[in-house]
C-alpha cells in the first residue's frame, strides 16, 4: 500500500516535470539534490560537484521527456549525475583514489591484541534507539562533522546505501565500483561512525 502511494506521488511529480511545472521542479530539486551531490562528490571536488549537479538539472528539463520509468526517478537522476561527473573527471585526467585493501579502520585495528582478541573492548552498550539519540542535537552536529571528514568515496557509498537506500547493485553501477569494493567502503565508513558514537557516549564530546 505504501509502495503504491509512493509510486503515485512519484508519477504526479514526473508528470509535473514533463509539463514544465516550476513547482514540480522545485519539489524535485529539494528532494533529489542531496543524493545527486553525494554521487557527484564521489568523483569531483566540492565546487565542480555542485556545478555538475546544477548543469544536470538544466539538462533534466529536456531529458525528462524521454524518461520511461524503467528505473525510479531517483536512480535515473543519480545515473545522469554519475555520467556527467565521470566525463568531467576524464577531462581533468584525475582519478578517483581509494584504498580497498584494508577493511579494518586503523584506529579500530589498534584495539586488538596480537592474539586477535580485544585489548580495548567496545565501551558501553548503546541501549537508546537511533531516534532517541538523534534528538540529541549535539550528537547530530557531531555526526555531520564526522560525515564531512570521511573520504569522499566512503561518504558517497554510505549516503547512497544507507541514507538514500539504494540497492547494492545500483550503488555499484552509479559509483562504478565492484561489489566487493563497495563492501569495503561501507564497512570503513560505518566503523568511523561507530567510533564517533562511542567517543560521544563516553565523553559527551565530539
Amino acid at each position: 500500500m505504501e509502495t503504491a502511494k509512493h509510486q503515485s506521488d512519484e508519477d504526479i511529480l514526473i508528470n509535473g516535470l514533463k509539463s514544465g511545472d516550476q513547482a514540480a521542479f522545485h519539489e524535485a530539486v529539494r528532494l533529489y539534490t542531496p543524493g545527486m551531490l553525494a554521487v557527484a562528490r564521489f568523483y569531483l571536488d566540492p565546487s565542480s560537484a555542485e556545478e555538475t549537479v546544477q548543469d544536470c538539472w538544466v539538462t533534466v528539463i529536456d531529458a525528462i521527456q524521454k524518461f520511461e520509468g524503467r528505473s525510479g526517478l531517483k536512480t535515473w537522476l543519480h545515473r545522469i549525475v554519475a555520467n556527467r561527473a565521470k566525463n568531467h573527471l576524464r577531462k581533468t585526467k584525475r582519478e578517483v583514489s581509494s584504498d580497498f585493501s584494508e577493511t579494518l579502520d586503523p584506529e579500530l585495528a589498534d584495539r586488538f591484541a596480537h592474539n586477535g582478541r580485544w585489548a580495548t573492548p567496545p565501551g558501553l552498550k548503546s541501549n537508546e534507539s537511533a531516534q532517541a539519540l538523534m534528538e540529541n542535537g549535539a550528537l547530530s552536529d557531531c555526526l555531520d562533522q564526522h560525515l564531512a571528514a570521511l573520504p569522499e568515496t566512503q561518504r558517497s557509498a554510505l549516503m547512497l546505501y544507507e541514507a538514500h537506500q539504494h540497492k547494492s547493485d545500483d550503488v555499484c553501477n552509479i559509483l562504478d565500483v565492484s561489489a566487493s569494493n563497495l563492501r569495503v567502503l561501507l564497512h570503513r565508513a560505518r566503523q568511523r561512525i561507530f567510533l564517533m558514537v562511542e567517543t560521544f557516549q563516553e565523553t559527551g564530546e565530539c
Partner: peptide, 25 residues
C-alpha cells in the same frame, strides 16, 4: 553498537538541503 550506528545514519537527516544551492538551481 555497529548496528546502532547504522540505524543512526539512517535516522540522521541526510536530506538536509543546502537552501542556497536549491535557490540557484
Amino acid at each position: 553498537n555497529l548496528r546502532a550506528s547504522i540505524d543512526l545514519m539512517k535516522a540522521h537527516s541526510s536530506q538536509q538541503v543546502d537552501e542556497e544551492l536549491v535557490h540557484r538551481i
